[in-house]
Amino acid sequence: MLIIVTILVLLMIVSAIAALIFKDLISAVIAACIVSLIAAVLFYFLQAPDVAMAEAAIGAALVTGIFVIAVKRTKRFEE
């Protein structure tokens, strides 16, 4: 149990750092979406299903959609 939580937290940290480092903005947005998804799973492990549902629906689906529309309007690659 603890091992699964540790692996998930490490994956979250790696993915958050990757969101800062990537130059292709679409890949950075996907990395941010992975952070939200893992947060939703961790909320479920901490026995808060309401918060997990809200985080999955809003953080992983809608916020990613809004970011992709924003990247489409500006430029895709960051120098």
Binding site: M53, A57, L62, G65
Partner: peptide, 25 residues
Amino acid sequence: YIFIHGHLTPGGGFQGGAIIASAFL
């Protein structure tokens, strides 16, 4: 379903509303 059964199962208005919006997306 999620927001109608908000007082029985986990979920509620915000969660149900966000899922409806993702359907539109």
